[in-house]
Design a binder for these strands. Sequence first.
RNA 1: GCACCGUUCGUCUAGGGGUUAGGACGUAUCCCUUUCACGGAUAAAACACGGGUUCGAUUCCCGUACGGUGUACCA
Length: 509
Amino acid sequence: MTDRPVRVRFAPSPTGPLHIGGVRTALYNYLLARHTGGTMILRIEDTDQTRFVPGAEDYILRSLEWCGIQLDESPWHGGAYAPYRQSERKALYMQYAQQLLNTGNAYYAFDTPEELEAMRKRLKAEKVDFQYNSVMRMQMKNSLTLPADEVRRRIASGEPYVIRLKVPLKEEIRFTDLIRGHVVVQSSTIDDKVLMKSDGMPTYHLANVVDDHLMEISHVIRGEEWLPSAPLHVLLYRAFGWESTMPQFAHLPLLLKPEGEGKLSKRDGDKHGFAVFPLQWNNPETGESSRGFREDGYLPEALVNFLALLGWNPGTEQEIFSMEELIAAFSLERVNKSGAKFDINKAKWYNQQYIKAMSDEQLAGFLLQELDKQGLICSNEKAVLVARAMKERITFIHELVSAGRFFFEAPVAYDAETVAKKWTADAAKALTAFAELLKGWQGAFTPTAVKTALNDLLAQLGMKPGPVMPALRLAMTGSGGGPDLMEILAICGREETIRRIETAVKALV
RNA sequence: GCACCGUUCGUCUAGGGGUUAGGACGUAUCCCUUUCACGGAUAAAACACGGGUUCGAUUCCCGUACGGUGUACCA
């Protein structure tokens, strides 16, 4: 139980795009696997045929790849414990359910969903909670209350049935959660959960336990929403006689809404204008699309870093971690117990940090991609220069273009406030003289050379640079802020500079 | 309702029987910068409440409050 090789699994349901909380769960699994030299497994839990969404599986795979979470075993990578899709393991579950039936740990139940619903309603009116448990089961239609031959008859005639776990009446269930410590639950509070549904598919509980056992999973790391059903799973391991090799549990704190009152949801993202999915998702059924962190301009390294520190911390004051550093530092012991409100500001900060740390060439690559999307053309050399100039003033990749548009196109409008404050007749006169000077320019058009020339000119005219610079900036960029002015001139080039000055002087007189 | 889990600055968190309760994001101010950012500095900002235990509790125990999750033939 303790010294087994580490084998962890991330087990999503392909019911839609992978939620950011799911990404974090996958990440923690991955970090533990790599930290311990263990194995990272992805298992698709598609036992609910009614909720299958085409494209969701593929989305999960692409999301994990984008985040840099590598899988060792999965439906796509294969592995010694294949298949890794529960729908392809269907026959297996019936076999194990049968084992539980044989050992008296489970029973057939014939109550229809409608009957159960009616029962729940009736008891609710009497202010009693309905639980299909050790006391109620003797009043229901199942193989415990019906004569054996009738049970056989019903099954033979094809009547729908489910198989339920026969939860012991009074038993203490204790287990240790790696994050929360000892957890004790009385079996009387657990109901006789359905193990096999009437469509012949297992429920999560059965499939999960059977597969974790068969795949020799050592640690079950999953969201806190599973904590209440963990005792049931322990009971299942017990019923199967697998308690000695039961995986260790670690229930992760949840990602909460920024304003508190529940789990983070897609709605929160829409409401506050941020993504809750790694990649953009287009719902094939409704045609509706949801934004993704990638499309919003986040770097995967930044997202991973942000997510890792949401619920875990190394106990040091280090904030920036590469995946390698996360792997080295990670431990389940340092995962927090309480839920974390999702603060997109911190994600933005991380993104900014990662952009700043990127090489000019690398950033230029992203810039070229963005430009291409918008039908703008730029040389490689210029892209590197622009990347360097913009690096420290953007938060998102796409801002290279939106905030640096003037590098590629002359301004089409001028910021009114800056015009009012900074554009003067004197400045316009000086700029016109500067443009004239530029027309006869000889030699390299570098920031320092331009600066010297401009300062000399202003000195001749008896003017100070103070009032002229902002006007020149306005002519070049249309606004009052941005990278070093001389850099801008050099990057845009001599002729373009002349053109912009002349345009501005005409437009703003 | 019942079961389980949780509660340190607005947010993410460190810490832990005696601390000026530390860091980061965000906010504010200043410095740097003829702009904007980056960077640097400073500031405001927290132990949910009530009882114990103890010389001493934010830290341990018990309650309360609040929050979260679960309570499906969904995962």
